[in-house]
């Protein structure tokens, strides 16, 4: 019978914390950049200029239709060539996860724009609210409000996907945890500890999503 020592992970708490910080930092940076990219992409997909629309659609479908792992590998090898210099692992990881986040976020904005009832547009025309006023004061605030719960879910998804950067040698929670696991020969304790830490961050966030969603839906129920 194996002997388990649940205290093992606690001996390495400082290293794990550094790893978690890397995971969180990467998630937050890519989330912020991804939201901006996603909003621009969602607008590009509504553009009247066909090539722009096609390009935006291709980008979204490509990043939603391939494994994030291969996106990561591809960008790690391609970016230095495209840029002409070695941008470093962190920058490459940021680019890769931002492109992925932008693709899923653009879908979020597309859905939230679509969910604004047609009657809102009729009303605005009846009130003479058109063009920029319509976009700025009626459409954008409602689209943003409706997008918030999904944006939070995207944040959770991105946090989970960020574990992949361990595969390209970035010292995130997954990488540090599994290195310790290999070195100490304590996979059960260490890998479970990693899972628990990811869970401890992601689970409360998913609970908040439900709460926020209910509140927003109540506000928008007219």
């Amino acid at each position: 019978m194996m002997h388990f020592d649940p205290m093992v992970p606690f001996k390495y708490w400082d290293a794990l914390l550094i790893g978690l910080w890397m995971s969180l930092r990467l998630t937050l940076i890519c989330l912020a950049l991804g939201i901006a990219l996603g909003f621009l992409t969602s607008q590009a997909r509504r553009s009247r200029f066909m090539p722009l629309r096609a390009l935006a659609t291709f980008y979204v479908e490509l990043f939603r239709g391939t494994p994030v792992l291969i996106q990561l590998f591809w960008i790690f090898y391609c970016l230095p060539l495209l840029l002409g210099f070695e941008p470093g692992n962190f920058a490459s990881a940021v680019v890769a996860l931002t492109l992925y986040a932008g693709a899923i976020t653009s879908e979020t904005f597309r859905a939230s724009l679509k969910s604004i009832p047609r009657e809102q547009y009729d009303t605005c025309r009846a009130l003479g609210i058109t063009g920029m006023s319509l976009a700025l004061w009626v459409v954008l605030p409602q689209a943003l409000l409706r997008a918030i719960p999904t944006l939070l879910s995207n944040a959770v998804a991105l946090f989970k996907e960020s574990a992949l950067i361990s595969a390209v040698g970035m010292a995130d929670l997954m990488f540090i945890g599994s290195s310790i696991s290999n070195r100490t020969g304590r996979p059960v304790e260490m890998l479970t500890a990693i899972a628990v830490i990811y869970f401890a961050v992601a689970f409360p966030l998913t609970r908040i999503v439900g709460r926020v969603e209910a509140r927003i839906l109540r506000r928008l129920a007219v």
């Binding site: 809102q120 009303t123 009846a126 009130l127 003479g128 605030p141 506000r219 129920a221 007219v222």
Partner: peptide
């Protein structure tokens, strides 16, 4: 602009 309209489902701005 001289015509106004009220709709069946109120269509107030929820935000």
């Amino acid at each position: 602009a001289r015509v106004g309209m009220v709709f069946q489902h109120y269509t107030l701005f929820p935000h």
